[in-house]
Amino acid sequence: MKKNPYKVLGIKEGASYDEIKRAYRELVKKYHPDRYRDNPLSDLAEEKMREINEAYETLMKNAGGAYQYQESYDQSYENSGSYKSSYSQQSQNQNQYQYQYQDESDLEYRIRNYINMGNLNEAQKLLDKMRNKGASWYYLQGLVFLRRGWYDRGFTNIQKAVNMDPSNFEYRNTLNNLHQQSAGYRQNYYYRNTYYRDPDMCNLCINLWCADSLCECLGGDLIGCC
């Protein structure tokens, strides 16, 4: 059974074009494949993304009655097309990676495959077999740790890979992603909780005190008792 597209996008039925678009953008951010990289739930996120794209396209098609709707619909269609193209680009990248790996040792290629399939035990076995522990070994070991939920060791291993081969884009990218994920989670919190940005009672006291001091400097007085 096909799901209600409004429910998928988390909006009321009959939501305006802008509301649909806004909801869609938020959800794309939330379930973006970048966020679920190196995560055992990446296939679930992909499925969710497919659902969201489908719901969005259905709603956009139905909204295409009035002239302005039609216009923006075409625009948005292009937009959603670009999301897709970035998807396919990514899978192309993956192919490229895989192609590249055939030049490298066969073992590494197999380890990556195991990691992608989520078969961490096999990947670990092969890693243990490798004698030459270069940057790529630390990188792959780091990936295995991350997938297992061992973030402390995952982080140190990937950090080490970056230190050993600072020019490698993939290693640096993964390391940056780790920082981004944890920073992003915190940011979400500050974004939600506005009281951290609003002036609070402490601030009020300090501001009053400052104002009082300033007035006293100029010869006046704001608060008589101090």
Partner: peptide, 20 residues
């Protein structure tokens, strides 16, 4: 610093699972 990273990263994964 490292403990903070480990904890926050774990929470970011909790959040990702929760989103699904």
């Amino acid at each position: 610093e490292p403990v903070n990273f480990s904890l926050t990263y774990s929470l970011s994964e909790v959040e990702k699972a929760y989103s699904l």
